[in-house]
Amino acid sequence: MNGLALVFYGGILLLIAVGIWGILSRRNLIKVIMAITIIATGVNLLLVSVGYISGRAAPIVGGDTGIDASSTTGSVVDPIPQALVLTAIVIGLATTALALVAAVGYYRKTGSLELKSWSYGLTNEKEVKK
């Protein structure tokens, strides 16, 4: 475990922890969706940083990059986590939009974005019905 590992894993896991704190402590639906987006960013960073190799170049070869296209082994980072994360980011936007539309539907039904009836001890029947 070196200093770089401490910075990257520690920073990313703290970012994910901030997202979890947001989900657990906020009752506004759109704020919860924002917290989920923060967690998604953290997980993407974690996956890419697991595939990183110190001192290697980006996985692009040939031409001006100076890496021989026929022997890429030993000179570039692992491309598989990057390919995984690339599609995950695009899917993340579509699912965020779907969740937001669901939140807008909740607002139209109840007149509020707050999840009152789901948090114990704070239920207020009159306000839930409104």
Binding site: L45, V48, R56, A58, I60, Q82, V85, I89
Partner: peptide, 13 residues
């Protein structure tokens, strides 16, 4: 982290 493809997607999305 040497992931320019992912960086482009993350920046625009």
């Amino acid at each position: 982290l040497r992931a320019p493809d992912v960086a482009m997607a993350e920046a625009s999305i």
